[in-house]
Amino acid sequence: MSALVAASVLVAGAVGAVIRYLLSKAYPVRPGHLPGGILVVNVVGSGLAGAVIGLAERAAVSDDVRLVLVTGFCGGLTTFSTWCVETIELADGGRWRAAILNVLVTLALGIGAALGLYLLVR
């Protein structure tokens, strides 16, 4: 991995993180709703990662581009920690149905997007 590629991965991850932050501010956790912004970035990022991994498999994009987009951008855009912590906070607040839905909807849409786009483009 060249220094340029490593630097590009870091910047792409940071840009992804800022987009996630702005969306989580625009669509925050509020009573009666799933954590919308986090759900959206996690599903979109998972789908994009699946697509790029599929493209890289048939050499449509280089390994360097895959690293910048998947490890960098998608890795920074999506998050595991906030998903888990928000789920527990929903459950602690007595909102069990929202907590369970947050897990199931994220898993179903995330796997569906990643696997679906991967199989579609590879």
């Binding site: 595991f80 906030t82 990643a114």
Partner: peptide, 20 residues
């Protein structure tokens, strides 16, 4: 929170690994 820890952890890598 959103920056350091949020980007250290990732869901897309989990989903990508599941596809692979």
């Amino acid at each position: 929170g959103s920056g350091l820890i949020g980007s250290f952890t990732t869901l897309s890598a989990v989903m990508g690994a599941v596809a692979i």
